[in-house]
Design a binder for these strands. Sequence first.
RNA 1: GCCGCCCUAGCUCAACGGUAGAGCAACUGUUUUGUAAACAGUAGGUUGUCGGUUCAAAUCCGAUGGGCGGCUCCA
Length: 604
Amino acid sequence: MPPRSSKPAETDPIYGMRHSCAHMLAQAVLQIFPDAKLGVGPVIENGFYYDFQLPRTLTPEDMKDLQKKMEHIGKQGQTFVRQEKTIVEAKEFLKNGGMGVKTGTGSDTSGVQPFKIELVEDLAAKGETGVSFYENVDQKGEVRFVDLCRGNHTETTGKVGAFQLTSIASAYWKGDSENPSMQRIYGVCFETEAELKEYLARIEEAKKRDHKILGKQLGLFAFSPLVGAGLPLFLPKGARLKKLLEDFITKEKEKRGYSFVCIPHIAKDALYVTSGHLGKYDAMMPIMETEEGGDALVMKAMNCPHHFELFKAEAHSYRELPLRYAENTTVYRNEKSGEVNGLFRVRAVTQDDTHHFVRHDQIGSEIDMILGLTRVVYEKFDFKNFRARVSIRDPKKPEKYFGDDALWQLAEKNLVEGVQRWGAEYFIGEGEAAFYGPKIDIMVEDALGREWQLTTVQLDFTQPENFDLEYTGEDGKRQRPAVLHVAIFGSLERFMGIIIEHFAGAFPAWLAPIQVRILPVSDQFLPYATEVFEKLRAEGCRVEIDTAAETLGKKIRNAEHTRVPYMVVIGEKETADKTVAVRDYATKKQETMELNALLVLLRA
RNA sequence: GCCGCCCUAGCUCAACGGUAGAGCAACUGUUUUGUAAACAGUAGGUUGUCGGUUCAAAUCCGAUGGGCGGCUCCA
């Protein structure tokens, strides 16, 4: 779950609180495991973590115990005292159990701290001559714990606000899988108990909205071990939801002059040699069985090369541009097993992909059109806050990128100016560019305040060269177009996962797989209920009827669980008056109306 | 891919070395129901899979598939 990346500044008081919590956690861990080897314990968004190498795996009981010990350390009100040491002193200190916890009865030590020594050596290599430590001194003046630390702490352990250990995970030392694996303990920390409670409630709410659970409850999709990980199977309601999304975006694009095309899902590997993808990303492109002497075929992991070949199939005039080849189509990527996650990360990714072939003088206006479209789309889904990241080259690693420098500079300038005209908040992501060009990614905030990357707009001067794309200019000469790779939803699967959680499964009527459920009070009223059902269906409404021999109360309960936007109750009164009693899921209010009035509601 | 945890009926869970069980859902019958659960019955499992330990394995061990939390990666 990508949270809005807003790690607090070091000068922020909450930074000191979270950092102090990390030290208290380390002290608590050393009380249980005197031989623990300590890694790093930084401040993160919402809290802190600390990495340890321990003699055994931590259990949930350990977490409770550690939480209690931390609370006890808090009550002791230990003072944080800064100490400066030279590199040599620091290493000596860390070799001799200097960090150890004094229990008051003896001189327990934490032994040698190899990871901390490595950190000191890294600092020395950077030219530091000294490092700082923070001691925890209790009220009797005893040093209970010492940690290598750059600082910013609370005055005492009693002033760290409200904290809660949340989870245990594993992480590699310095994030490198060649390095030893450590156990990471996560915690959250806020200034007040109320903020902590609110945060934990939000996490609880997010769990309830988990699209994997809702997807099962609402009958949207399923996974099969036999089909494979990361390969969702869409049930009728999920398939309908997916189609509604595709139809919506297709219609919006057609209104803006996009041309829809259609390509096969496999291609010769030579296609990806030309595009430059094969050498760089072939691990992601499963190669199919080939016949003797035949061509090697690969599943497509992106659509651009196919669309480029489509562009080349015809001669193009400058008058035709911008030409926008759009398609909702699936690409196949061999994501690592540990990466697949519900609909958020799948191996068969349906994209609402578009390749815009534009003249260089049209880049700005095309970006304006695309960003304008994104705004319409986000508003339709009730996403209120969004911001853009402009991803440019890492200036230190020019070899990572194809294409000449002048074109890159032009491309980066075009994108920055585009988001400036768009007017929403934006920031620059250095080193985040694709190998063929810079891009704009747009992040939206959902109903729970979580941020998700959706739309991507990638400007590309490189691939048109590789594929020798051209059009005839006004002057009759051959010109090279630029290409914009754009997906508004990005991955349809991922977008479905996001909106399932955003709406908590209660979709607006225009998007709901089933819009209306008809509930006859008893089967006496089936004839009129069936008449209403058939009329609504004939009008194109997505409607179902509950003919079960159950009480109305039970039918309403069942309908509530499906989160259908409207229930229509039909009994004696409605049959006599030829009306429908419409119960609104969102308001739980009921209103009796003519059938036509219901149709108006559904088309709103 | 790596580290850790998890996998029992369609779903949610129990049993935790000694005969696999409940609720919901499904099905059958009775009830004909007016705003969040009518009543009774029936059926449903080689405990993800394979192998091992044991007189005996859902339970212990190993492998494998899938899931979850992280790490790493993300054209």
